[in-house]
Design a binder for these strands. Structure first.
Lengths: 254, 254
DNA sequence: CGAAGTTCTAGTCGACAAGACGAGAACCGT
DNA sequence: ACGGTTCTCGTCTTGTCGACTAGAACTTCG
């Protein structure tokens, strides 16, 4: 179909001096735990296209910065947070027409923040809000561009990362109770974990959590105050909890 | 319902008329198993920069195609394979200066092919070769651009995918023996797996492998001919084998 | 043809991890 | 004080995974 002449494997039908030009943007999916549910940070677009619709924060990459630097800069500009616990690239999106104005390829990043309560202001005229991920995934809230797909992929990525990396501690603060940490797993995976077994798998081996000696305030319903821990070093190499996918994969007898 | 007003618009440089222009390319890391070792398909560059060096096949994305389509097209043009068993995007690379000529952001894809024996030809077969991944990773072979990092990331991705997806069957043909499949795991993970236990975890549950009734030719050393299987449906949801990550001992060469 | 060698297949056994569960400890409200 | 709630500890059971052994099937070599 095309001229497949090539010089030692490199196609020559594309002259570097007349390459097709694209805009390259970086979009950041900011996830956080709030009130036991997974939330995503969205901004309301102030201009066309998709004016008035919700979108994930992002912006153009600059020629002098790396992709990671661009993501970090955008995160600062949009949320005021200058160092996320976790900032990982997880996908690129370049369908023709995904931006009606021009050819845009976007690199998507996932950022995990601990619960901040209210949204910190950025440099944006429009509103920003923490929206429950479930409201986005089930279509109750429409997103601009192909951002729904990007959020879907981000959540799926979190589910996997939760099992193989120490991403769970990124949702928590400097110190946390085991119940808080367990809530992260339960919310992201959508499962119920036994509190006693959860504690055992973390405390049994050294390096996951370090007791601070202090105790948290009990909740409104009372109860024994939980121990406060901080994250150990083992999280860098992997996660302590495996997803009990046996719940969905019930073995049928035959 | 935390909403907060902001003072400036979506970043000032978000102006469609004066966005920074980039070239967008798609590079494909083609991995295959050959002689019990993991191999990567490389092409020899015929022009500057990096003339004469090995590189990953790839090329410019066209404005009218998606990223996935671009990857598939490049794979066809470079290797002649029109449908890889697996073609997955795994990363984007956009460091300034990674291409000395201009600003290039590349989207990296991973393709897994079953062993093709000899070098598969594009239009210029002499310029392409299957190189053992180990030779690339340990620096015996220099790669152009930042392609060494891309290959590193691809191999790491395969290691993870092997555990959570059915990527293992992509290395094998339509029918395969369990020894062949086991060799994939052993080569990618660098471990030794017990043949008996490996078989048990596959045939114990239904859906992993389906017996064809036929038997493979024994190897040069003789031995009982192995049963020939084909892949079942369970591979779509996950992998049957977990990586024994506690094992540090490398597989001894043979 | 028989013997030796190689590989595949089947089964058992024990160690260990993971889930279920009960009981007690600490703190709340009334 | 007292029931309700949450956290913490221990035990029991279950299932999985690796190590191991033995036998089956086919090769080549003498």
């Amino acid at each position: 179909m095309t001229t497949k002449r090539r010089n030692a494997g490199i196609p020559v039908d594309y002259d570097p001096s007349q390459f097709p030009a694209f805009a390259v943007t970086v979009d950041v999916v900011v996830l956080t735990m709030s009130e036991g549910m997974l939330h995503v940070l969205l901004v309301c677009r102030g201009e066309a296209p998709f004016e008035g619709m919700w979108a994930i924060p992002g912006g153009f990459k600059r020629p002098t910065e790396t992709l990671d630097e661009a993501a970090k800069r955008e995160l600062v500009e949009e949320t005021g947070v200058d160092a996320a616990s976790l900032l990982t690239q997880f996908g690129a999106y370049g369908d023709p027409g995904r931006d009606p104005r021009m050819n845009v390829v976007t690199i998507a990043y996932l950022a995990v923040l601990r619960d901040v309560g209210a949204v910190v202001g950025g440099s944006d005229a429009a509103a920003a809000a923490l929206i429950p991920v479930s409201d986005v995934l089930n279509g109750k809230i429409d997103l601009a561009f192909d951002h729904l797909q990007i959020v879907r992929d981000a959540v799926e990525r979190v589910r996997v990362e939760l099992e193989v990396t120490g991403i769970a501690t990124a949702f928590a603060g400097a110190t946390f109770t085991l119940a808080e940490l367990r809530a992260v797993y339960e919310a992201v995976w959508g499962v119920q974990l036994d509190a006693a077994n959860f504690r055992r798998s973390l405390v049994a081996e050294d390096g996951w959590v370090i007791a601070t000696g202090r105790r948290a305030q009990p909740g409104a319903a009372g109860g024994k105050p939980a121990e406060l821990f901080r994250a150990g070093r083992a999280w860098k190499t992997g996660g302590p909890i495996r997803c009990p996918h046996s719940i969905e994969k019930r073995k049928d007898n035959r």
